[in-house]
Amino acid sequence: MDTVSIKQEYEKTEIEKVISNLEADLIGLTPVKSRIREISALLLIDRLRKTVGLTSSNPGLHMSFTGSPGTGKTTVALKMADILYKLGYIKKGHLLTVTRDDLVGQYIGHTAPKTKEVLKKAMGGVLFIDEAYYLYKPDNERDYGSEAIEILLQVMENQRDELVVILAGYKERMDIFYESNPGLASRIANHIHFPDYSAEELLEIGKVMLAEQQYKITREGEDVLLKYIQLRKEQPLFANARSMKNAIDRARMRQANRIFENNSQVPLTKSDLVTLDITDFLQSRVFALPTPEVAKPTSPYGMYSQQLQPGEWGQ
């Protein structure tokens, strides 16, 4: 065979559908989507080269996803697993998400079987290790994380045709983690950074979340929600889309209480049950904080003189 069709291969593998869904499902994240397209293009061309008998080195598939919580890393990992499966680079296409606790034991002889059991379950798919830097604790002589890393390194090198590993976490911590583990860093071919969402993007994400749960928000409510997001982003423990979900859940609870207290004896319309208004958001404690312009900095987390207490974030 001397000729091949990119279009035919694109359609046969259904990669276009996966990438289109990625574009539709995720708001923002333009650099991430571009990087996924680049990786997909490389893998598709590699597949075509094999078809016509050309030499094709096995592309490095292990990845690093860095960014704050709630920026879509797990969602993109799921899409990546689907792409790798459809292109024939993994056999099963499933994603197994784990943390340090799933890999590292508490006593001598416990870590190896735990790690090997996880790797066994992940074979044929993608292993997603969240907050991967917690595997390495050089200050603790009794820590067994290094044993898990050694086993992981062996599998990433010797069984790379059977398993793809994605390491994820905050960028600064992941950079230190890789500096401390050069063998691990050398096996990661693709580094993708997930930027924080803008306030406007988070508003769109919130509206999508509401629509999925068959709720809607008034135009005035959108303005208040946008202001809430802008204030909440200045507070500690902000987690992008996760914080957005928490805000929506609390607003739904306030709406339920509002309806119950004010309309317990009055028949309700469908609109009453699906609409969130400004009061459902204005009750958040975030709005009780002083504004950055008039507050004095008393915390390393921001410019507010009054900080929310633990358990109050985003209420």
Rank of each mutant, 00 (worst) to 15 (best):
R252M: 15
S264G: 04
T269S: 15
D280R: 03
M253W: 07
I278Q: 14
T218R: 05
R285V: 03
I278H: 07
A241I: 08
S284H: 08
R285S: 11
Y301S: 01
M244T: 15
P292G: 04
A211M: 11
L225P: 01
A241Y: 01
K227H: 14
E222M: 06
L225M: 15
P292K: 12
V294H: 12
E261F: 06
A251V: 06
R254Q: 09
P267K: 10
D280L: 04
T269F: 09
R242F: 08
S243M: 09
R258E: 06
T275W: 02
D280E: 06
D277Q: 11
T298F: 03
S264V: 09
Q283S: 12
M253V: 13
A288R: 14
N240V: 07
A247W: 05
T291M: 11
A211N: 12
F287I: 09
T218G: 07
T291R: 14
A247S: 14
A247M: 15
N262L: 13
P297S: 12
M253K: 11
A241G: 04
T279G: 03
I217P: 00
P267H: 06
F281Q: 00
N240I: 07
D277V: 13
R252S: 12
M244K: 04
M244L: 15
T298D: 06
I229Y: 12
K216G: 03
R252V: 15
K227L: 12
D272M: 06
L237R: 13
T218W: 09
R258F: 02
